[in-house]
Design a protein around this nucleic acid. Sequence first.
RNA 1: AGAGAGGUGGCCGAGUGGUCGAAGGCGCAUGCUUGGAAAGCAUGUAUACGAAGUAAUCCUUUGUAUCAAGGGUUCGAAUCCCUUCCUCUCUGCCA
Length: 424
Amino acid sequence: MLETKSIRKNIDLYSNGLLKRGLSDSKEKLNKIIHHDDNRKLYKAQLDKILTEYNQASKKIGEKIQSGKMEEAEIMKKKSQKLKILRKKTSEKLKNEEAIIYEILTNLPNVPDEIVPSGNNEDDNDIIFESKKNVNANKKLYPHWNLVKSFNLINFEKGNKITGAGFPVYIDKGAKLQRALINFFIDQAIKKGYQEIQPPILVNETSAFGTGQLPDKEGQMYKVENENLYMIPTAEVPITNLYRNEILNNSLLPIKNVAYTPCFRKEAGSWGSHVRGLNRLHQFDKVEIVQIQNKDNSSKTLDEMCDHVEHLIKLLKLPYRKILLCAGDLGFSASITYDFEVYAPGQKKWLECSSVSNFKTYQTNRMNIKIRTNKEKNLAHTLNGSALALPRIVAAILENNQENNEIKIPDILQPYTGFNKITR
RNA sequence: AGAGAGGUGGCCGAGUGGUCGAAGGCGCAUGCUUGGAAAGCAUGUAUACGAAGUAAUCCUUUGUAUCAAGGGUUCGAAUCCCUUCCUCUCUGCCA
């Protein structure tokens, strides 16, 4: 959520930023916020004045009653009763203004960082780096959905039977590979100073709102209706909300957490023939890194997190590219996002396997997470990134390392899997 | 899930209709003391939103709100009533 005070100060900065995302009426909306904030201040001042009068009257009535002057007290009571109506009216006006501001603010996305390129869709993204694909043109390479079937690693049909489409069943070495990757990713993060957390995978409404999934992505989350809980779409939600309503001392920074969780996404509307196999799922595993940092160091932290993700992909020896998302492709709450994609030669496609973002104060303003430095208090910056999401990494590993009758396991993973190749 | 007891500042804890944003203690901060420390003493110590002063989102003065959350009764609510949430104890169930 953007901050009204900052909007008032830098309206052009904000409106130009939102314009970059394609919100043509942003200036109008921002001006509307300021207008209603002016009203809010006015009514707040009025109400406070009324309340002051009211409180003083009540005190006097108490004194009269105690000194036995009942008649005078009765007269004053009647006066106060009249004030009560005015109090209610003004307080309603105030609440109304606050509600309008809140409504606009919660539906306004974050402002893109100045280095974010403008553009409407993925075609306008900046490819920062792209490694060689290392593909032998003479060899016949299969997409992973063929491989998982012929090597009996994942059974999609069984998943359909017991749950539905997008809920795969991992089998034998397929299942072991999942565990290996999770442990490998967590160990690597711990090496970099992240503290491991195992959070609940259901969260309440307040948490879903805090990180910006509500109201923007309501339709994308599975909801446990009668409990009013949401299945998490990413560990970002429970982890970041751990610090909701807290004032953190600057000396504790950066806070670095890593969590493995399953993730659940409805992916409504994005289902089709172009998403096969592991490319898009309703349930998948992900190791997520989250950092809370102050405003001065957050961009450095973003680079550090990107480096970590890049390092993981390199250790797995997968061809990859790093992409700076353009404003139009940016998530609702993010100010800047780098995507990492690995190459899957069997389907000749780049697959997104990580998204590393700086949300700056957008989430913390909703969640009320502050940092105290001496006497100063500021909203914290939050950052997170996948490190990494499993399914597309599995797809890339299988497709890149396939030989005629086996699939090689990357060296670094072998201590985790306990086997060095997958055979039929 | 049933029955009972509760939810007060960073923590503990007093407070059952007015003088309570809240005693007291602990903790923390600053100063005095000391060769240094401890002890002792003194002072300070919530958050949010307004108003005035100000270059300032610092600061000073001041107002308002907040005693789990929301609503109600009353001139006046931490205190009484209602709803919701949460915690603890016992019983039940269970990995």
